[in-house]
Amino acid sequence: MSPTPTLSQPQRTNAPTSSGTAAVTVDNVAKSFGTTTVLSRMNLRITPGEAVGILGPNGAGKSTLLSLITGERTPDAGSVAIFGANPRTPEARRTMGVTPQATSLPEVLKVREVLDFVAAHYPNPLSTSELLDDLDLTALAGKQCGGLSGGQKRRVMLAVALVGNPDMLVLDEPSTGLDVESRQQVWQRIQAFSAAGGTLLVTSHHFDEIERLADRVVMLADGQIIVDDQLERVRTAVDLRHVTVTLPDTPEAVIAALPGVTGIQPGEGARQVITCSDSDAFIRALIAEGLTFTDLEVRGASLEEAVAAHTAGH
């Protein structure tokens, strides 16, 4: 496994270089299946180079939104544009690398053959061998896809999205079913793509994955966007802080009575994790009361907590 991905990509020339062209423009889009309205009045704009994480419960419309972006489906109302072009056209699709939604690959084809086949559709594809090496799949290159484990298939599917050397990656739950080491590897490779200037659109059920890969969080619920903001702002917007500290001489009851405290959890060793609605008030109280403390650490809400707080308001 190579410690850092080898990016021998030539300059990407797939997308128009007009600085005003958004990577993705979803304009007032509606989509229904039968009598069920899945998306309504959806607006989303992604600029080139952004890394967007899409969250939401099952049935919120994430997969439908993605299928409109990849051109698999057409909206009932409104329009979708990828770098200014219709996502149903080869021109637009040459700018995108997509992971298939479910874990599915052609059973009788070998890994290398699948990648070569997909790469043939793109003007500047990556080298199949190097990409396989980056994702630790070289040993499986000659194996038929039907013989791969679920986690191996998942990694091959990421390779399928990357091999075209696209300007934008559209990844639907990229690390489902992967063990810890594979997830790290996959995340590293995706981050390398973003660092090189690629546009990233990723859906996930795992908050740690979104936190790792995305700068911007879009949350869907019932076919509507309820959160669309930079990751940091989403976290800090919630009045929730975790103060991790060692308070050797202070009993719990006393801590709990301090201003701004909403909960206390044991931390590592002698440390305690104190949940605060107002961490500044709590810290001022510690100092004012003259309580002995060491190793104080303040952390904002996790993405999961922030999102839970946002959706609780809906």
Binding site: T70, G71, E72, P90, E91, R93, R94, M96, V98, P100, Q101, S104, L105, P106, V118, H121, Y122, G164
Partner: peptide
């Protein structure tokens, strides 16, 4: 997989 093929350029 055949759904995915339909998204190819």
């Amino acid at each position: 997989w055949s759904n995915y093929l339909r998204t190819l350029p």
